[in-house]
Design a protein around this nucleic acid. Structure first.
Lengths: 198, 198
DNA sequence: AAACTGACCAAAATAACAAAATGGTCAATT
DNA sequence: AATTGACCATTTTGTTATTTTGGTCAGTTT
C-alpha cells in the first residue's frame, strides 16, 4: 500500500533526481551547481541533502540510472534464439550507439576530454565496468554451454569491449573510419575467428 | 670524403640535437626552452634556427630518433626461424618494454597525462603509428606466406597493438594486472586463436 | 515533530592585472 | 658564410581581489 498510494504531495525525491539528471546532461558534472538543481527541482537546497549526502552521491544516483537504461537496452537486444556471437555484437553495437546518443554520456565524455573532471571520468568508468560485467555474465554462460571456448569471463568481456571500441574509435588517426558492416565483420574476425590459419 | 672527414670544428648540428634530446627527455616538450637548448648545446640560440625552423621541427627530429631506436630494437628481436606469432609477441613485448623505460617516452606520456601538451601527444601518436606500420609490414609478409589468414595488414597491426596494450594497461581499474606470462598467453589466445569453438 | 527552507560560511573557483618567461628575428660579429 | 645574443611581440605565470560553490543549520511550515 505504501508503493501504490502517494499522489497528492509532490514527490520531492523524484523532483530532485529529475532536475539533477537534466542539469548534469546539460551542464556536465562541474557545470552543475546544487543551487541550480534546487531551483530546477523547485525545492530548497537543504532538501537535496536530506536525500543525498553530497553532490557526488546525487551524481552517482544519476549514473546508476544511466546504467540501468543501458542494461534495459541490452536486455531488449538479446535474442535467445541467436548464437552468442550475434548477440554479443548486437548488444555491443546497440549499447555503444545508445551511449553515443545519450546526452549525459556525451556531455560527460566531452567534459573529460576538455577539462578532465575526475568525477566525470569515474562516472564513465563505472559505465564501462557495468558493460563489462554484463558481457562477462553472458560470456560465462556461453562458455558453460560450450558455445565458445572456455576463458576468463571478466578478461574476455574486457577484451571484447576494448576491441569493439578500438574498431569504432574514429577520433584517432591510427586507422581510417570503418562502416558499420566493416566493424561487425572485423569484430567477428578478430574476436571469434582469430588470425591463426587452420 | 665529406662524410669521412670533419673532425676539428665542433659539429653544431649534433650538439644541438644532443642537447635537445637531453632537454626534452628531462623537462618534456613544454618544459624545454630554446634558450635552454642553446645553452646546453653551447651554441647561440640563432644557430638552432639555421638547422630547424622552429621548436616543433627540432622536436620532430628527436622523435624520429626515438622511432629509429625502436625500429632497431624490433629488428634485433626478430628471428627468422621463429613462427610469426612468436616474433610478433616478442617484438611487441620488447618494444613496449623499451618504450616504457625510455626517458623521453616516459616523460612525454606523463606530460600528456598531466597537462595534455598537444605536441607531446602528437609525438607519441607518431611513435604508435610507426609501430603499427612496422608490424603491418610483417603481418603482410606472414599473410603472403600463408602463415596467417589473409587480412588487412594495417587494420590487423592496429588491432594487435591495441590488444596488447589493453592487456598490459595496468593504470586502469577495469581488470587486475596480469603477469608477463599471462599477458603473452592471453595475447596468443585472443589474437591468434579466437573464441570460436572448433 | 517531521519535512522543508534559504541565509550563511569556509573553501574553492574565477577574474583582473602585473611581472616574468618564451619562441623567434636579425643586425652585428666572427 | 656561419654564428651570435640583444631585442620584441606574445604567452605564460604569479598575485591578489572578487565571486561562486558545496554544504550546514537555525528557523519556518506543514
Amino acid at each position: 500500500m505504501e508503493i501504490i498510494a502517494e499522489k497528492k504531495q509532490p514527490d520531492r525525491r523524484r523532483q530532485v533526481v529529475d532536475a539533477a539528471a537534466r542539469s548534469f546532461e546539460t551542464f556536465g558534472y562541474k557545470g552543475t551547481t546544487m543551487d541550480q538543481v534546487a531551483k530546477l527541482a523547485q525545492v530548497g537546497k537543504g532538501t537535496i541533502y536530506t536525500f543525498y549526502a553530497n553532490k557526488e552521491e546525487l551524481f552517482e544516483e544519476i549514473m546508476t540510472g544511466l546504467i540501468r537504461e543501458l542494461k534495459q537496452v541490452a536486455d531488449e537486444t538479446l535474442d535467445a534464439k541467436l548464437p552468442f556471437a550475434d548477440n554479443l555484437m548486437n548488444v555491443l553495437h546497440r549499447v555503444s550507439d545508445y551511449r553515443a546518443r545519450h546526452a549525459l554520456a556525451v556531455k560527460l565524455s566531452q567534459e573529460v576530454r576538455d577539462i578532465g573532471t575526475p568525477m566525470a571520468k569515474d562516472g564513465l568508468e563505472k559505465v564501462e565496468k557495468a558493460i563489462i560485467g554484463y558481457v562477462a555474465l553472458h560470456v560465462k554462460a556461453a562458455s558453460d554451454k560450450g558455445e565458445i571456448r572456455s576463458c576468463s569471463p571478466e578478461l574476455t568481456a574486457y577484451m571484447m569491449l576494448k576491441m569493439y571500441l578500438a574498431l569504432t574509435a574514429d577520433g584517432n588517426h591510427l586507422h581510417e573510419a570503418l562502416s558499420k558492416e566493416q566493424i561487425l565483420e572485423s569484430f567477428r574476425f578478430y574476436c571469434f575467428e582469430g588470425l591463426a590459419n587452420r
